[in-house]
Design a protein around this nucleic acid. Structure first.
Length: 511
RNA sequence: GGUCCGUUCGUCUAGUCAGGUCAGGACGCCAGGUUUUCAUCCUGGUAACACGGGUUCGAAUCCCGUACGGACUACCA
């Protein structure tokens, strides 16, 4: 049982902030692990020293945390398979590369980048369809397969820079089954002799990934489909290391696409597309440029998670709203789609609106408080909660609340011209004046009483109801928006309502 | 260019493996209702099987081809 325990890993490179596609990969891995009572490991793949970006690792951890994804082991956590940062595992990889050289499945290559460029150029000029370092072209290059053994020894002794390449078979089919895409079949002649070990002493992704997945007892590799073409090389590595029996199940997920149609979503898209591509705000440490994040844009993590998980996956039912627990329960690799999907901001907003409605007015109040403080508003909490209760169904984000409630806290100082034109008649001031008299006489000032009394008054005097109500709203709010005028007046108090009506009459008549 | 993959409403998708209801749902959009405002909400509507062949009584579903789209093709991951 413990032998077959599901172990998956999310293995991003700290080359910048995690974008929503990467985050979705993390979510799928996490859900799969939880569903099967397995482990979710966070491994940082920082084998490229040149692309390392400061702060990226912290960003990744925080992003996962924001969504409620907690690694069972990995960077920032303990675990018996650590360390979990590949730069901290540097000492491990060389011996595996050497093992392959000894078994004849890898070789040293001493070609400089100029020589490599030249080779590719030559092949291109010869109209060769393949321009790779492979079973054919390696015969013309500088490596331990073409050089005399003594020359190789000499080069190595002189510390000549070298890489270690995987020696691909000449004529072999490499077949593997993908849990999402089905069976793949590659011919070795189409593949290249991938570099496993770089001249800077670091392994490449291909080596480090396979070695670590093996050492960390990973059972399922769930990753983006940009990796499908290098998977046959990975399969070969498992074979050459003699690890076939512990080779993980591969599941390649469709990519998230740019909404404008061209290509996969990338970190560089930043805010260019009209929506954030990052979960959290990110400040580029070099350029100081700031990219917005969903958290800062006002999305709730549960809404964002819910939306993201439905991009490329669905449970096969018509259910669209899921808690994390339900997702864990329902998640299934078989139901991951095969084609890429585009992000739809409108739908994301819809989810956020839904989740906002699920919150209590007290919870919303707590989130709204900082905005009120910033605006210098200091109202009693019960009052504000009542106001929120009245308007929350109109809000998608907490930040919507201010424009939605501002008039409760501050009397209007402008009045919508269009509404004046349409609703303000010659006798409106007099009608409203009559209402102020009525209001002042009222003992109870709840919305229901107000509504009854005012409607009675309107009927008795046989005046136009629309004119009165719209006029009231205009003087009270300043525009033709908001909930019932009776509710508004009740929350505003009688005194404030009368003041606003009088002020409104004066102000509007002046123009 | 080569290799690999994909293609159902504008978008996310169900249905494809085991061929047989007017191709279902959601977002968006439009209309109506509620609200004498606006929004929410409710009801209804709009809108898709990329194309061409084949197999079959019958094809979104199976086969072939084409087109389009994507990934990879780095001492990046």
């Amino acid at each position: 049982m413990s032998e077959n325990k599901v172990r998956v890993r999310f293995a991003p490179s700290p080359t910048g902030p995690l974008h929503i596609g990467g985050l979705r990969t993390a979510i799928f891995n996490f859900l799969f692990a939880k569903k099967h009572g397995g482990d979710f490991i966070l491994r940082i793949e920082d084998t490229d020293q040149n692309r390392f970006v400061k702060g990226a690792e912290e960003y990744i951890i925080q992003s996962l945390e924001w969504l409620g994804i907690e690694p069972s082991e990995g960077v920032g956590k303990s675990g018996q398979f650590g360390p979990y940062r590949q730069s901290d595992r540097k000492h491990i990889y060389k011996e595996y590369a050497n093992q392959l050289i000894e078994s004849g499945h890898a070789y040293y290559a001493f070609d400089t980048s100029e020589e490599l460029d030249k080779m590719r150029e030559r092949l291109q000029n010869e109209k060769n369809s393949i321009q790779q370092y492979n079973a054919v072209t390696r015969k013309d290059m500088k490596n331990s397969l073409t050089l005399a053994e003594s020359d190789v020894a000499k080069l190595l002794a002189n510390n000549t820079p070298y890489v270690i390449r995987l020696k691909l078979p000449t004529n072999e089919h490499i077949v593997f089954n993908d849990a999402v895409l089905g069976e793949f079949k590659f011919h070795s002649s189409q593949l290249d002799d991938k570099i496993l070990f770089k001249s800077d002493g670091m392994p490449t992704y291909h080596l480090a990934n396979v070695v670590d997945d093996y050492l960390m007892k990973i059972t399922h590799v769930i990753r983006g489909s940009e990796w499908t073409n290098s998977t046959p090389s990975h399969v070969l590595l498992y074979k050459y290391f003699g690890w076939q029996d512990s080779m993980p199940v591969f599941a390649h997920m469709p990519l998230l696409l740019k909404p404008d149609g061209k290509g996969k979503l990338s970190k560089r898209d930043g805010d260019r597309l009209g929506f954030p591509v990052f979960p959290l705000e990110w400040k580029n440490p070099e350029s100081e440029e700031i990219s917005t994040g969903y958290r800062e844009a006002g999305y709730f993590p549960e809404a964002f998670l819910n939306f993201l998980v439905l991009l490329g996956w669905n449970p096969g039912t018509e259910q669209e709203i899921f808690s994390m627990e339900e997702l864990i329960q329902l998640f299934n690799i078989d139901r991951i789609g095969k084609s890429g999907s585009k992000f739809d901001l409108e739908k994301a907003k819809w989810f956020n609106h839904y989740y906002l409605q699920q919150k209590t007015s007290k919870e919303i109040y707590d989130a709204f408080l900082p905005i009120l403080e910033e605006k210098g508003i200091n109202f009693c909490s019960t009052k504000v909660i009542n106001i929120i209760e009245l308007v929350k169904e109109r809000a998608t984000f907490i930040s919507d609340l201010w424009p939605l409630t501002q008039y409760f806290f501050e009397a209007p100082n402008t009045y919508d011209e269009k509404v004046i034109k349409k609703r303000w008649k010659e006798n409106t001031p007099q009608l409203l004046e009559d209402i102020t008299v009525l209001i002042s006489s009222l003992k109870d000032f709840d919305a229901a009483t107000l509504e009854t009394k005012i409607k009675e008054h309107i009927e008795e005097h046989e005046v136009n109801m629309g004119q009165v109500l719209n006029g009231l709203r205009l003087t009270l709010v300043g525009s033709a928006q908001g909930p019932s005028v009776f509710e508004i007046m009740s929350l505003l108090t009688a005194e404030e309502s009368v003041n606003r009506i009088r002020r409104g009459i004066q102000s509007i008549n002046k123009n």
